[in-house]
Design a protein around this nucleic acid. Structure first.
Length: 184
DNA sequence: AGAGCGATGGCCT
DNA sequence: GGCCATCGCTCTA
């Protein structure tokens, strides 16, 4: 996972195919990352753009940690911190392909379809919220961690979703033809 | 298939 | 006080 220290846009591409795991009391829940977005420090759409605050502090910490934020009053979204410590960069995980613990995901989501094809959906499916903000994803004994997965067959590049600033950059990536990407 | 909108709370000015 | 890196229900076709 050395690539997390690379340029954040490149890191977002390389996170495709990596497996995100949450070890819970009710079992191991995991999914392969199939869609990401890069948020750079000099990027008006990034939470870190206006400097460090209590909320976004994790983004300014070391790469490979988990940044979880709360939005729209009811949703959590999950990011992997990238780049050098102090820069404030991260990659938003927008979609997963479910691998293990699908029964747990169904329970967490309260439905049996569309488990992980959106940033807030996958956070709920894996049981991730404010409590996991800041955990180290690169440590073996961590409850939430990243594991090496498959190399994607193909990568599609588009502009990012759901932002109003800095709209034109092609910083969203997904595995071409993967059925679990979020729509739009 | 697609547009409209309500739910719901923390963060920032 | 207004804004949100959202989701899913409800309406119109």
């Amino acid at each position: 996972m050395k690539f997390l220290l690379d340029d954040t846009v490149l890191a977002a591409r390389k996170l495709l195919g990596v497996v995100l795991v949450h070890d819970t009391p009710s079992g191991r829940i995991s999914g392969m990352i199939v869609e990401t977005e890069a948020y750079r420090a000099d990027d008006a759409a990034s939470h870190s753009y206006r400097g460090q605050t209590e909320r976004n502090a994790v983004m300014f910490g070391p790469a490979g940690h988990l940044y979880v934020y709360f939005t729209y009053g009811m949703h959590f979204c999950v990011n992997v911190v990238t780049g050098q410590t102090g820069h404030g960069e991260a990659v938003l995980i927008r979609a997963l392909e479910p691998l293990e613990g699908i029964e747990c995901m169904v329970q967490n989501r309260g439905r049996s379809n569309n488990l992980t094809n959106g940033p807030a959906k996958l956070a709920q499916a894996l049981g991730l919220d404010k409590r996991q903000n800041g955990v180290n994803l690169l440590q073996d004994d961590s409850a939430v961690k990243l594991e090496t997965g498959a190399t994607p067959s193909g990568i599609t590049t588009t502009t990012r979703v759901g932002i109003s600033e800095n709209v034109d950059h092609p910083w969203r990536f997904y595995i071409t033809n993967n059925p679990y990407i979020s729509k739009r």
